[in-house]
Design a protein around this nucleic acid. Structure first.
Length: 501
DNA sequence: CCAAATATTACCTCA
DNA sequence: TGAGGTCCATATTTGG
């Protein structure tokens, strides 16, 4: 499309290569250090020492380390050291993955694994959250035992993408999302449902997909992944746990209801990590020299990952094979979101900065190309495209100040609703999401509110406002099993959880 | 032609 | 309390 864009990507790609090289270099250095001092397997104490901040008020206030070269920050290499120190860039605060000795001795990909305890930011590793996730995860797996294997219909499974014999498919009993209608007037924000979970700008929010615990996961600009265990708040301090598995903005989080012990996160630095609670590690499952802007998984398949890489590539990664099984150039610019229809998981929607959102049928591959069923054109970049809970509608959000609603058997009905989406530079882009049925869409507004759009009357029918919402909520998630529980995340690291009275 | 600079925006931090 | 720093979005303008 516009050639200028590509050069921008080229520049970023080079930065990523550089950063990844640094990362790998640091892993190698560490590996050698570990080899030399084999007696002291883990130097936990040393790892933790830097966190002893003068006054340890709150975990979330510990200084955040950004591993970035001056060049990557757009500064000349000889920029003043003082400037670097001002950013907290200091030997003692360098956060380097420690477990390099766990890297496979295979020749090519260096799979850097970070243990969860090493990634933990705080004075002392607190295992309560991990234990809680484990117990809830085991419970949900038990309820799935005897679950019948679901065969994905036709084409795509023939291509052997992520289909496994027994454990790859989901639990058929487990609904993707609980449907329900709500009275918008009854939504309220209680003061105890506000928390600063991570420092800095939140890029992605997700509820843990279970009814057994109310837990929020967020990813921020600095590569932190933060958990807020809302239930545990009373007996467990603030219930907030922050880790640093990445070193650049966390672009996406993918969780599956029937496999709660595994969580994928994608990052602008080109890495995809898997937080495996059973193994207590953040595994490196994929690394690219391009940035990864979006990640998703099919609702019925835990074994493959779909992610947007570089300027417009959709990559399908087969976890079992440990390699990318398909790659399609779907867009001319970065893919901001990837979503699947709950009606039919072969139907996928993508949104892109190239100004379009498209719906694809993964079974329809023609000469190594996916053919789109429908393309929705906006005047400018499209920030998101999400299917409604039933799977029959699609909501798109664009910087052209439009929220599009697409419906009809062949997605032939498109209506464009005006909504001011100029977030500027400091606020993350708005992404309209669906609630718990096909009637309402939620999206942030620049006046510290949440606009509620009706897909039927196709206008703004309400705006959620609260004195406790002190910043603009820009990224949202609707709890998949708790109707009426809506999380909004801000560019200052805060999360607001709206609930029904 | 392509790269670099610029304006926009609102949050948090720290004097 | 208010100024300063932010700086991976995006489109437009300027510069070599």
């Amino acid at each position: 499309m516009e050639p200028q864009k590509l050069t921008e990507y080229e520049r970023r790609r080079l930065e990523n290569i550089k950063k990844n090289e640094e990362m790998l270099a640091s892993l190698k250095v560490n590996s050698r250090l570990n080899d030399l001092s084999a007696a002291t397997k883990r130097q936990r104490a040393q790892t933790k020492s830097y966190k002893n901040s003068p006054e340890k008020k709150s975990k979330t206030e510990t200084p955040i380390v950004i591993r970035r070269s001056l060049r990557a920050r757009g500064m000349p290499p000889n920029a003043s050291t003082a400037d670097g120190l001002k950013d907290g860039f200091d030997e003692t605060t360098l956060k380097i993955p420690r477990q390099a000795h766990m890297m496979p001795k295979k020749s090519r990909p260096v799979m850097g694994t970070i243990t969860i305890s090493d990634a933990y930011i705080g004075t002392e590793w607190d295992k309560k959250l991990i234990d809680k996730i484990l117990s809830v995860s085991k419970k949900s797996q038990l309820s799935c035992i005897g679950g019948v294997k679901e065969e994905t219909d036709g084409g795509f499974s023939d291509l052997a993408v992520g289909v496994s014999e027994n454990e790859g498919t989901g639990c058929p009993e487990m609904k993707n999302k609980l449907l329900g209608s709500i009275d918008v007037e009854k939504l309220a924000l209680e003061p105890e449902n506000v928390a600063r979970v991570v420092p800095g700008r939140i890029m992605s929010v997700r509820f843990f997909p279970t009814a057994d615990m109310t837990t929020i996961v967020v990813g921020n600009k600095y590569g932190n992944v933060g958990f807020w265990n809302v239930d545990a708040e009373k007996e467990d301090g603030d219930g907030i746990y922050v880790y640093q598995p990445h070193s650049a903005p966390v672009s996406g989080i993918s969780l599956q209801p029937f496999l709660l012990s595994k969580m994928f996160t994608s990052c602008y630095d080109g890495f995809i990590r898997l937080m495996d609670v059973e193994k207590e590690v953040f595994d490196l499952v994929y690394s690219s020299e391009y940035a990864i802007f979006s990640i998703s998984q099919r609702p019925d398949d835990v074994r493959s990952l779909y992610f947007g890489e570089g300027p417009g590539e959709l990559n399908i990664w087969d976890e079992r094979a440990g390699k990318s099984s398909f790659s399609f150039k779907l867009h001319e610019d970065k893919i901001n979101t990837i979503d699947f229809s709950s009606e039919n998981s072969n139907i996928m929607a993508t949104s892109s900065t190239d100004g379009t959102a498209s719906i694809w049928d993964l079974r329809k591959i023609d000469s190594n190309k996916l053919k789109s069923l429908k393309t929705i054109s906006h005047k400018r970049a499209v920030y998101s495209a999400y299917f409604s809970p039933s799977g029959s509608c699609l909501a798109t959000t664009s910087v052209d100040d439009i929220v599009g609603i697409v419906s009809g058997a062949n997605y032939e009905d498109i209506s464009m609703i005006y909504h001011y989406n100029q977030t500027g530079r400091w606020i993350s882009t708005f992404r309209a999401i669906w609630g718990w049925d096909d009637s309402y869409i939620f999206i942030g507004n620049m006046r510290r509110g949440v606009d509620v759009l009706s897909s039927i009357s196709r206008n703004i029918i309400a705006t959620l406002q609260s004195e406790h919402m002190s910043a603009i909520p820009c990224r949202f998630d609707a709890h998949p099993y708790k109707v009426g529980m809506l999380a909004g995340a801000t560019s200052g690291g805060q999360v607001y959880i709206w609930t029904l009275d």
